[in-house]
Design a protein around this nucleic acid. Structure first.
Lengths: 212, 212
DNA sequence: CCAAAAGTGTTCAGCATACACCCATGC
DNA sequence: GCATGGGTGTATGCTGAACACTTTTGG
């Protein structure tokens, strides 16, 4: 069980949403190369473990969560993507509700934290490209399989959902059309509750009718 | 240049079309395991070569063709997919016009031949699953990016094109709707030529207006 | 009463689907 | 003349896109 595949790694882009800006989980590296830099959490694959199982394991180590939507997005195989040796990496993405778990900085991380996707600086290796690839992938999937709904809390106003969609699509959405669409597709169900404590008119809360 | 990445391979599903049935290229293995079995052509990745370059190189070795649409489809990473050691394989697909080149059985193949996709038997390893995955991928892509048009010869009657689409989609297509669609999307252009030598009414030939 | 966000309907165009018959040729 | 595949048009419904104003609350 201790043996790892020497030239393959996995990286996990874990997205979360707390109502305003889409965020991605980064760890502060506690090993070389790129010691102390913030980067996507990665990991190796054991010899007797499938690639996907390695990603699941890594995700569990980070969040404690086991049952989760996890999708293989792309393969990064350029010769020079990793400085010290030839390493091919498989990118996985997952979407979580940050409220549901507590971050755990594993043995190879000094720290772990959420960063707003729109405010990221330069990350080590090809990790910026990985995040861009993931965002593009979500953008293409967004109406085919609205998996991003896993990011939303149990109850939420529709404007929050629309805000989330907007960030994936990278462009404005007409709110009337948006409401019609999510209701006609039976993605959401209206509740008899409203938001409280805002400075403006309270909004009805909705819950998801589907899970993926 | 001689060193290879020990736990990664690529496999190439090369599709061709001669007017009737969709075909896939298989080689007769000249090495263990599965000696003498027909299987997808595969190969290893050199240490100083990107994954995609390895696929391109392998394709060139098989067909002599260098400029070609080549797409990474999926990763096969189960622990037991290869009998003698842990091997993760990246599946690539390409679509070619069989008329344009001559098959070359490489050093690790006793023979190389086209097989009708609909008539394949059990292949070694997970190669049946690979072909199914590729077919499904094409089915999903078929109208978004009609790459399969690379399979068609320079000039072809529309019924041949429709036949090809039908095989990818796995269901019948209404011929009036099909014609309207490919013409309105400007995929094809009508020529002033007709088929000859058939037993029935000659058909107008078309050529592609787009390449991908 | 004012600022701020919530909420609501209609129209239009384009596209996918369904559907059945006549045409041109070789034999 | 008949068998075989080639070729054509219309009507309908759905979906996505565009578009502006009224409502409700807190301060």
């Amino acid at each position: 069980m201790a043996d790892i595949i020497p030239n393959i790694s996995i990286d996990v882009a874990l997205f979360g949403f707390k109502g305003i800006k889409l965020e991605v989980l980064l760890i502060k590296r506690d090993k070389k190369p790129e010691m102390d830099q913030w980067s996507l959490p990665g990991g190796y694959v054991y010899m007797d473990e499938s690639i996907k199982d390695a990603a699941k394991r890594r995700l569990k180590e980070l969040t404690g969560i086991t049952k989760l939507y996890l999708s293989q997005i792309a393969l990064f195989g350029d010769t020079n993507r990793y400085p010290t040796r030839r390493l091919v990496s498989v990118l996985f993405c997952a979407l979580i509700k940050p409220e549901q778990f507590k971050l755990i900085a594993g043995s190879d991380a000094k720290d772990v934290e959420w960063f707003k996707v729109s405010e990221l600086g330069k990350l080590p290796f090809d990790h910026n490209e990985m995040i861009n690839t993931a965002m593009l992938w979500f953008k293409n999937e967004i109406w085919r399989e609205p998996i991003f709904i896993n990011l939303l809390p149990q109850k939420f106003p529709l404007n929050q959902m629309q805000n989330l969609f907007t960030q994936f699509l990278g462009e404005a959405i007409d709110n009337r059309n948006f409401r019609k669409k999510v209701i006609s597709q039976e993605l959401v169900e209206k509740l008899n509750e409203k938001t409280k404590g805002g400075q403006q008119r309270p909004a009805f809360l909705y819950k998801l009718k589907r899970t993926i």
